[in-house]
């Protein structure tokens, strides 16, 4: 299969690669960009583990092809964690034990960050609704909701 050259920015760094047209974004990030924080849980767009930001919006990395991302700005969990806002969310997740195995966590963090960008003071129900596209098999979700609410409360105070 003939490869195509793509150039995009991942967590602020320019990445150029020759990729097969069928390579999805999640596999591209893991295999080509060597950022293994983005996880692949179902490869059919349901579980949410591969969620990353593409040009500011949360997207399923398994439902988008790498070649569709020519010129795009991608943010993965590694980039989110390195930002001030993301780091606050990461710390809240650790504090509340909002992760057990940690496999869903990168997608959960990206999705939660998007929610707080759009709605800085959500209710618990709104948090639960927004996170309903991200499966977590370990926690039962309550601690994740607690962590997101903690961050929202903290930001409101400051």
């Amino acid at each position: 299969m003939s490869r195509r050259a793509i150039t995009l920015r991942v967590n602020g760094e320019e990445v150029t690669a020759l990729v097969e047209p069928r390579l999805n974004l999640a596999d591209f990030l893991r295999q080509e960009a060597e950022l293994t924080g983005t996880h692949v849980g179902c490869e059919h767009g349901v579980c949410g583990a591969c969620t990353v930001k593409v040009d500011g919006r949360a997207v399923r990395g398994c439902l988008m092809l790498a070649v569709q991302c020519e010129g795009a700005e991608i943010e993965t969990v590694e980039g989110l964690a390195a930002s001030a806002q993301g780091s606050e969310l990461c710390e809240a997740f650790v504090e509340q034990n909002a992760l057990q195995c940690g496999f869903c966590t990168p997608g959960m963090l990206i999705t939660a960050a998007e929610l707080l960008d759009d709605n800085p003071a959500p209710t618990r129900e709104e948090v639960r609704d927004h996170l309903s596209g991200n499966y977590c098999r370990c926690t039962g979700y309550q601690a994740i909701v607690d962590a997101v609410m903690d961050v929202a409360a903290k930001r409101e105070m400051s």
């Binding site: 590694e78 997740f93 650790v94 992760l99 940690g102």
Partner: peptide
């Protein structure tokens, strides 16, 4: 006590087999 290994997992620094 918070779990020390959680700090890496939230930063995308887990080490799963497929990594």
């Amino acid at each position: 006590v918070s779990r020390p290994n959680a700090a890496g997992l939230v930063r995308g620094r887990g080490r799963f087999v497929d990594d």
